[in-house]
């Protein structure tokens, strides 16, 4: 076996040989889950599940990337997503947009700007968090950064609340501007498909594919993979570890920011403690799919979306969370590494 850091195109495979075959199997699994869900749920609930799943998946990817590279359960990640919802609403609110925008051109510009600014800002937030709370503890026992992660979570929640009514949003539910008309539907074969749901799904899938290409095909992606595999060896081969980890945090947090924007558009409301539940679900998604594995995290996010929506569709919404965590237990019993297996170094 060649030294992992020098094998440019081969992420460590557990059961299957060749990255292409492995990817194909994983995508086939995703497709199978989707087909099954469509058959059970019917078109409307299927779309609800895809929308919710997209948001979970975007958050879960950031979780899993951070774990993949420094083996840290970043408990503050859900709160980064929450900050994203607030950055987006502050941005639109400052520009004076609080209601649906019906001019298509303006809407496209606004949405693009909203996503771009929120993602960059959140990326920077992620880098700052990594620099101040995690990097100083990188050689400390693993429990230490776990505790600072919880501290960061508290700091973010309280920063957003501020000192009402002087600044900040207080401990209330705050309305997020739904600039994308929520009453716009496409009629597809007898089903009203909300255009917003299509947009959210397209954004999520677009970002996931971009991420996959970025990690698989670029130089920085290669340093990320090698750092995840063996940090010391990567450093010896000339990879700038600090920069690579910072970039990972930037990307993960930017994705959480994108999730925040889509969340605001879809639900039109946010709260300072939104990150806790979202983070818990995203963490579950990441573990479900195999922590450290971005495709696994996305799959996990969609599965949780489908379970929750499925429970409601069967008239058992109150059992949704219980079934989600029940599924996690079952998966971990039979596949301790998650559905798609971990894609981290041998130490994991």
């Amino acid at each position: 076996m060649t030294a992992p850091a020098t094998s440019a195109e081969a992420p460590p495979a557990r059961s299957l040989s060749g990255p292409a075959a492995q990817l194909a199997v994983q995508l086939a699994l995703v497709a199978a889950v989707l087909a099954g869900a469509f058959a059970v749920l019917g078109p409307e609930q299927f779309i609800n599940a895809l929308t919710l799943g997209s948001i979970y998946a975007l958050i879960a990817i950031g979780y899993t990337m951070v774990y993949g590279i420094i083996e840290l359960i970043n408990f503050a990640h859900g709160d980064v997503f929450m900050v994203g919802t607030f950055v987006s609403l502050a941005l639109l609110g400052t520009l004076g947009f609080t209601a649906a925008v019906h001019d298509p051109l303006l809407l496209v510009v606004l949405l693009a700007g909203d996503f771009l600014v929120t993602m960059i800002l959140l990326g920077v937030v992620g880098v700052v968090i990594e620099r101040t709370a995690y990097r100083p503890l990188r050689t400390a026992p693993r429990l230490a950064p776990l505790i600072t992660a919880i501290g960061v979570s508290f700091i973010l929640q309280n920063l957003v609340q501020g000192v009402p009514p002087y600044f900040g949003y207080g401990p209330y539910a705050t309305n997020a501007p739904q600039i994308f008309p929520t009453d716009a539907f496409l009629r597809v074969g007898g089903t009203n498909v909300p255009v917003l749901s299509l947009l959210i799904l397209a954004v999520a899938l677009g970002l996931m594919i971009t991420l996959q290409l970025f990690v698989g095909r670029t130089r920085i992606g290669r340093s990320m993979r090698s750092t995840a595999l063996d940090r010391d060896a990567a450093a010896l081969m000339g990879v700038n570890i600090n920069r690579t980890i910072a970039i990972t945090f930037f990307i993960g947090s930017a994705l959480a920011g994108a999730a925040g924007v889509t969340y605001g558009l879809q639900y039109g409301v946010t709260r300072f403690d939104l990150g806790f539940q979202a983070g818990l679900k995203a963490f579950t998604a990441a573990v479900l799919g195999g922590i450290g594995n971005t495709i696994g995290a996305a799959l996990g996010g969609f599965i949780i979306g489908f379970i929750e929506v499925g429970a409601a569709a069967m008239g058992q919404a109150r059992w949704g969370p219980a079934i989600v965590f029940g599924a996690l237990v079952v998966v971990l019993v039979f596949r301790p590494a998650g559905l798609l297996g971990q894609q981290v170094g041998e130490r994991a």
Binding site: E44, Q45, N48, A49, T51, L52, Y267, V269, L274, Q277, E308, V309, A311, A312, A313, G315, Q316, A317, R318, G320, P321
Partner: peptide, 18 residues
């Protein structure tokens, strides 16, 4: 129809769709 919803949930669309 009747459903109980998790008090922490913010997504009521699945219930409302049903």
């Amino acid at each position: 129809d009747r459903q109980g919803a998790d008090p922490k949930t913010t997504d009521f669309l699945p219930i409302l769709t049903k």
